[in-house]
Amino acid sequence: MHTKVKRTGRSFRNWKYFLNLIPVILVIFGNLSGGWFTLLNFTFSFIVLGIAEILLPEDHTNDDWIEDELPDTLMFLSVAGQISALLSLIYGISTGIISGYWIITAALSTGGSSGTLAIVVAHELIHRKHKIWNFAGRFLLFTVFNPYFYIHHLRIHHKYVGTDQDPVTAKFGENYYHFVGRSISGQMNQSMQMEIQRCKINKLNPYGFNNYLISCISGYLGILLLSMIVWGWEVSAALVLQAIFANLLLEYTNYIEHYGLSRMDNERVNEKHSWQSDKLISRFLLIDLSRHSDHHFHASKPFNQLLSYPDSPVLPGGYASMILPALIPPLWFKLVNNKIPKHFSQKP
C-alpha cells in the first residue's frame, strides 16, 4: 500500500509538468515563421523526445506531490496554448506565411501538439466535476473534431476496460493498424447508442441537437464551412489534417495503454490492468498519463497525484520511444508480448 503524502507549498514535481507546453510553443513559432520552422515540433516530439526518453532515467517517486495552484495554472495555459496554436495555423496559411507543402508539415506539427497537449489535458479535465473545467475539456476535444471521447471514455471505457465490451482495449496479437479501425468505429457506435438511449430516457429527440454527437458533428461542419468561406479550402484542410493526426496519436496511446491485458467481466479494475511507464519524458511531457495504472485504479485522482505501482505491468519503453515499435508489428510483439503477465489471457 502507498501512503499518501499531502502537503501545501511549492513542489518541483508540479513545475516539471510545464514541460508539456514546449511542443505548443514550437508550433506557434513555426506557424508564424513558415518554411522549415513548421517542422520544429514534429522533429522535437517524434525524434528528439524519442531519443531523449531512451537515454534519460526513470522517476519512480511517489511521495513528492504537493497541493498548490500550479496544476490548475497549467490547465489554463494548455487551453490558451491550443487556441493559440490553431489561430497561428489559420493565420500562417491565410496570410501566405505557410504555403505549398509546408501547409502539410504545419498541420502535422500542430496535430502533434493537439495530440500531446490538447487531448491529454482534455482527458484530465473531463474527469473533473467542476463545470468550467469539464467544459474546457470538451472544448479541447472539439478542437480536434473528436465527438465521442467524452462519452465513451467516462461511461464505457472505464467501466469495461480489459473486457471484450471495450473496443479501446487492444487484444493480444492485434497490431496497431487493425486496432485503430476497430477502436474508432467501436467508440463511435457505442457512444451513439448511449446518446440515443439517454435522449429517449429524457424524452428528447435522439436524432437532433440534443444528441451530443450530432451537435458536435454539426459544429465541426459549420466551422469547416466557415473557415473555407473566410480563409479558403487550405485552412479547412489543415484543420482536418491536424485533427486526424491528433486522433491517430490518441489511438496510439490507447493501443499501448492496455494491449493484451484482459480481465473477467466481474473482476474489479485494479493497477494490473493498464501498462505503466515512469520514463521522465512520458511522465512530465504528458502530465503523468503514463501512470495509467493508477488512473484506472483511481479515476478521479488528479494527474499530479498519480502513483507508480510495483505490481503494474511496465512497458519496455515510454510513450515517446514506443511509437516506432508500435508502427512495426513484429517489433512491437517481440518487445511487449513476453512482458505480459502469464495470468492474462493471451489469445488473439
Rank of each mutant, 00 (worst) to 15 (best):
E174V: 06
I47T: 13
T253E: 03
V269C: 10
A299D: 10
L74R: 00
I244D: 02
D164W: 08
H273N: 04
Q190T: 09
H157M: 01
L213D: 00
P341K: 08
D294F: 00
T163N: 07
D166Q: 09
S215N: 10
D59L: 07
L19C: 07
M188H: 08
L125E: 01
P330N: 03
K200P: 10
P341Y: 11
S45G: 08
F179W: 04
F284H: 05
L221V: 15
A107G: 10
L40W: 04
F284I: 07
Q305E: 13
L239Q: 05
R155H: 08
T38H: 03
G50I: 03
S113F: 01
Y207I: 05
S308Y: 09
N146W: 06
T73D: 06
H258R: 03
F139K: 01
F76M: 12
F245A: 00
K6S: 13
G219E: 13
E53I: 01
I256E: 02
F209P: 12
G50C: 01
Y177R: 13
V230G: 11
A136H: 05
V168N: 02
M228N: 15
L140S: 08
D278T: 01
L86E: 04
N189P: 09
W36S: 14
I214L: 12
L285G: 10
F76L: 14
H258G: 12
V235E: 02
A122I: 11
S277Q: 07
N14C: 12
W275M: 03
V336D: 06
I28N: 07
T73Y: 14
Q276V: 01
A320T: 01
T73S: 15
L250F: 09
L154W: 05
Y207Q: 10
R10C: 02
N266F: 15
A238Q: 12
I126W: 08
F139W: 04
M192P: 03
L261I: 11
L307F: 08
L224T: 12
L249K: 11
H127E: 06
A320L: 01
M1A: 10
D63N: 15
F18Q: 00
L32Y: 10
M75I: 01
M192N: 06
Y309I: 04
I223A: 09
I328Y: 12
N266E: 15
T105G: 04
H258P: 04
L55W: 13
Y252Q: 13
F284W: 06
L26D: 04
N189G: 04
R138E: 04
T105K: 02
G222T: 11
G111T: 11
L307P: 05
P23H: 07
N14P: 10
T61S: 15
F209K: 09
A238I: 06
C216E: 11
V230Y: 14
I196A: 13
G30C: 00
K171W: 06
I214A: 00
C199K: 12
K4G: 13
T61H: 15
S282H: 00
A106R: 15
N175D: 15
W65Y: 14
V27C: 08
V161G: 03
P325A: 02
I132M: 12
K347G: 00
A80F: 08
S321D: 06
